[in-house]
Design a protein around this nucleic acid. Structure first.
Lengths: 235, 235
DNA sequence: AGAGACAGCGTACGCCGTACACCAAAGAAT
DNA sequence: ATTCTTTGGTGTACGGCGTACGCTGTCTCT
């Protein structure tokens, strides 16, 4: 008649569950709200319990980054390097847009995570298979820079700070604050033109996706030109 | 005979002095060691004294960014847009290399600082003066991305974390840890080739400056081509 | 039945940013 | 000369953070 504990015995923690909960928390509440204490609370557990599954907070976010990076689609097979690289980068971009805190997290790490190394390695492999010399592949990877990972930071992108201010910016900068146009006339002009066919005269900003692909294609075409003319280290 | 206080009456604080001390502290000890308390101590003052000169920590680092950005040389006059842009970006790069914490700080801000807006505005102006349409200038600014500011993050650049670990990495990864070459064969190959004429077989890595200019010129030449063929929004 | 290993708990420490009340000295106004 | 106000530095205190360390209850293997 032992009244066995009828409390539902919640499924035990695991590194997997911790990382997933952390990613969810960062996605919803912003990276600033990711504390060991908040995360523990979300998991219905005491903060120190987490340390049985992750070594410390740095290692936690490293794990979170790897979880996200693994969402990136593998490279297309049976196509030319250019198409393969382009599509993979756009896949990476889609992933990082779902998790806006990741790009900053990646840049804050002092050491690349295994998943990122694997991703970069595979990207290099695509170039090599496409006939690139080791040297050219190397320079090209540098040239792509963070764009390889699907971001190039839209300087001060608001999405990245989602949840930082709670609500996700329902305010388009209705009228950019008056002196702006005087102090920064060139930027102002761009801002106005960029919102060409929008209802509001100013504010929607520009099409991030277009800008990203514009830059990506500019690079890819420059790279293709180098490749076709048999680039050698003599510059 | 009033023994007037002979204590040297240290020069009073000012926003200027606070910002300069903060930049110096971040330069020397790394951005992680920049706390209001440490900064106050450096200035021989109690932490709360700082708040008479800066609103809060975010506003402090915004001010620090502006101090640094203002070190960037103005654009060259009397030259073509390409040369002007190239040299200015290289100047920005030199500045940001002196203050390795800045690029991350910039990316962490949710709003661009005035000095950055001024810098970007001036850069747009250089393109416009060079005959670029508003539209093309806009896209081109996006294409340059963070390279406009002289960095493109050398993914996990060690310099950026200077002081983070105290001593500035006297360890070249003497032998990259064995399984590396197995797990990431393409990266390994690059790493080996990159250290071609070095004494150690592996480790020095690559010439960051060369890589930066390689990518910069790749972009500038692609941009020049667009410009010369009279780019219009039809892509 | 006893011995480990494992996972979650509780407490505590030293950092952090900063709100708030206070106070000395320096002008400014009387 | 006296008072008032402003300015800039002080002291205390609060809540939040990451995490070291020791305890406890449960599950497994012998």
């Amino acid at each position: 008649m032992a009244e066995q504990t009828e409390v539902p015995r919640r499924t035990p923690l695991s590194r997997e569950r911790v990382l997933r909960a952390a990613v969810a928390l960062a996605d919803e509440a912003g990276i600033d709200s990711l504390s060991m204490r908040n995360l523990a609370q979300d998991l219905g557990v005491v903060p120190m319990a987490l340390y049985k599954h992750v070594a410390n907070k740095d290692e936690l976010v490293a794990g979170m980054i790897d979880v996200v990076i693994d969402e990136i689609a593998p490279p297309l097979a049976d196509t030319d390097w250019k198409h393969a690289v382009r599509e993979r980068i756009l896949s990476a971009r889609r992933v990082l847009q779902r998790h806006p805190w990741v790009s900053l997290a990646i840049e804050s790490q002092q050491t690349p995570t295994p998943a990122i190394l694997a991703y970069l390695d595979s990207m290099v492999g695509t170039f090599r298979t496409g006939g690139f010399s080791v040297d050219l592949a190397h320079h090209v990877m540098h040239a792509m820079g963070s764009r390889t990972l699907g971001f190039s930071q839209e300087l001060f992108d608001t999405a990245r700070n989602a949840g930082r201010t709670g609500v996700t910016s329902p305010e388009p900068p209705a009228a950019l604050p008056a002196q702006f146009a005087d102090r920064f006339p060139n930027l102002a002009k761009i801002a106005v033109v960029a919102s060409h066919d929008d209802t509001s005269v100013v504010g929607r900003g520009c099409d991030d996706q277009f800008e990203f692909e514009f830059a990506l294609d500019l690079l890819l075409e420059g790279i293709e030109r180098l490749h076709q003319q048999g680039w050698t280290s003599a510059r």
